[in-house]
Design a protein around this nucleic acid. Structure first.
Lengths: 345, 345
DNA sequence: GGGGGCGATGGTACCGCTTTCAAGGGGCCG
DNA sequence: CGGCCCCTTGAAAGCGGTACCATCGCCCCC
């Protein structure tokens, strides 16, 4: 007992956490074999595999991913950045992606940029420090430095929720400009003559801006009047109500309004109710997102349904394929959208 | 040129990613000094610090967190598990927590359990493999194995959004039972005589169940009639509408209903409108959450406001203090809640 | 003027796992 | 029946940092 050789306590922190070497010893094999049993079970003999599994069980062994990551220079981690966690659009995408990836042993590191390129830059840097297996970004607008780092990292990169030329690597989304166009066409086809786009935080939410641009372009292409109401605050229910108020004040003749998202449209719906404005008779309303309340509101909300879950699923599939070395998938994937006509417009 | 000694390419993966040794060489110092300059800049001379910073800049050096984590047996990572990312309740908490932590260089690993204890167990296991600095869990209901692992990990653990005895480590939240009680008392004080609680997925959402239990308990303690309508689906707008429909069918005499969250209450509001039921005259409605639309709906929604952001903030503060070695904070933090009386009830 | 002490820096074992590389063993084919 | 090859397994060298410990000046005080 005078020789404290037993465990060399001095250094180890997670004192009672067992290492792969412990498993190996208990199973009577080398660590190489344990490592293989974990990573490619099929190349280890069934007998050893059983012994190893038992040892793992007995010791409640949890592999140290940092050690593994360091040794292999990669981690089973995927960094993803969305503008806002609170936005249900993205959260559904994230859930779908996360679940699919988790099934294959990948962890998601989620961060939100708050629609800021600098914050995205910082997030990308900190993700990269983890040697992630891939990185998923929202949108196409990134800082030069972000771009450079991503390129140098030489890992799969997905830009999502938007379309465009020359992706960094892969692109999964749909055209927001087309969304705007489709809504404008829809309004016109229903007889509207004076259109409006109501958006919030358009200086930061470039996708919303793009929807507005498409809407305006299509309107004027069709010879229809169209105006924009732009709010500074973030898109929320209250913002939508304000937007409607401003619209009515400034552009009383408008008979159809496209709100940059459903949440705002809901606010507008409430405000119309409060003001006794008949929807859609006096004013047609359309949102974007097809959030769950759109199918329940009074009146039911006409809106555009983006492929929220599908985006997550397809990204997961593409990534998983790439991880296996299959780079045959398309660089750009247009998943389209759907205009859902309900009662409001 | 015949001796390929230069860089021993054979092994390194992220070929063009520079290491701390590169920075050290360029700055003409040892790696120890670079490490210190990064971790505790104030104990390094200003001159060296400058040289090192320049070298870092020049090389676009990004430290390998896995190497650092392995060496120090800890990582600047906090694992957090919420039932659902899509629930705005939690996302606000997560945002607040994440921002505060990010300011101090900590990364959040976010996962969702879908209200399942097994999934939580798996998530905790995979988080632990990263040697996180702390783990944050939603609620108080965990599997035995999760508990054991958490205890063995010897890291700060926070259970949030709920209150109770004997936390694993720290507890930040409020009493859902009291929420239910407060709503029942409120309804009674407004003259309601037949109360109802409408909840969804109560078998999994134990906090909603608790709110219902408190509501029922207080009602019967006050001698008031109270019933429960329990839906199997997840709490959404449509579920709320269904809940109201069932309530009206099965319990036509009810004059005040507490919905287990605002989203459901919103659905109920819509359904009332559709059926021409006057709120609050014929039926009083109260939600939970004080989501943004509650202050905009028609009628305005009476609800309970949980300290969403505050929970995140306080957890961050407590954790940060613990990371600095300050364990003087309270083990249980009751942040209370607020009943917001508006028009609906 | 000399010794002690302290702040700043460098040297160097690891951290726990992955991954060559080499070796042992057995089966199959000629 | 022997040789070759392939399938398994083990040995050991890192992966890129961190942190302990040693070293080296330099300043301060007696």
């Amino acid at each position: 007992m005078s020789e404290p050789r037993i465990a060399d306590e001095g250094r180890r922190r997670g004192v009672n956490r067992s290492r792969m070497a412990d498993v190996a010893r208990l199973a009577g094999v080398s660590t190489s074999t344990v490592s293989r049993a974990l990573r490619q079970p099929d190349i280890v003999s069934p007998e050893l595999r059983t012994r190893i599994d038992e040892a793992i069980e007995r010791l409640a062994y949890v592999p140290n991913l940092m050690a593994g990551g360091l040794a292999s220079a990669r981690s089973r981690t995927v960094g993803i950045i969305v503008p806002s966690i609170m936005n249900s659009f993205f959260s559904e995408t994230v859930e779908a992606l996360g679940e699919r990836l988790a099934d294959r042993g990948y962890q998601l590191m989620l961060g939100h940029s708050g629609y800021s390129t600098e914050r995205e830059e910082a997030l990308v840097a900190s993700y990269l420090a983890w040697s992630p297996a891939a990185i998923v970004l929202t949108g196409r607008h990134h800082s030069k430095l972000t771009l450079r780092r991503l390129l140098e990292a030489e890992i799969p990169v997905v830009e999502m929720w938007e379309l465009g030329e020359r992706p960094i690597d892969m692109l999964v989304g749909f055209s927001h400009r087309e969304v705007g166009r489709a809504v404008a066409r829809h309004f016109r086809s229903r007889g509207a003559t004076r259109l409006a786009f109501v958006g919030a935080a358009l200086d930061r939410d470039l996708r919303a801006l793009e929807r507005g641009a498409g809407f305006l372009a299509e309107a004027s292409a069709g010879g229809t009047d169209a105006v924009t109401v732009s709010l500074a605050e973030r898109p929320q229910v209250a913002t939508g109500a304000q937007g409607l108020a401003r619209l009515l004040d400034e552009q009383p003749g408008v008979d159809a309004a496209f709100f940059s998202n459903d949440v705002m449209a809901l606010g507008a719906l409430f405000e119309c109710r409060r003001r006794g404005i008949a929807v859609p008779e006096r004013l047609r309303l359309c949102g974007f997102g097809d959030l769950d309340f759109a199918a329940e509101s009074v009146p039911l909300l006409t809106t555009v349904r983006p492929p929220r879950r599908e985006i997550g699923r397809r990204i997961a599939d593409a990534l998983l394929a790439r991880f296996e070395g299959d780079a045959s998938g398309p660089a750009v994937l247009d998943l389209g959208f759907e205009l859902i006509e309900r009662e409001s417009g």
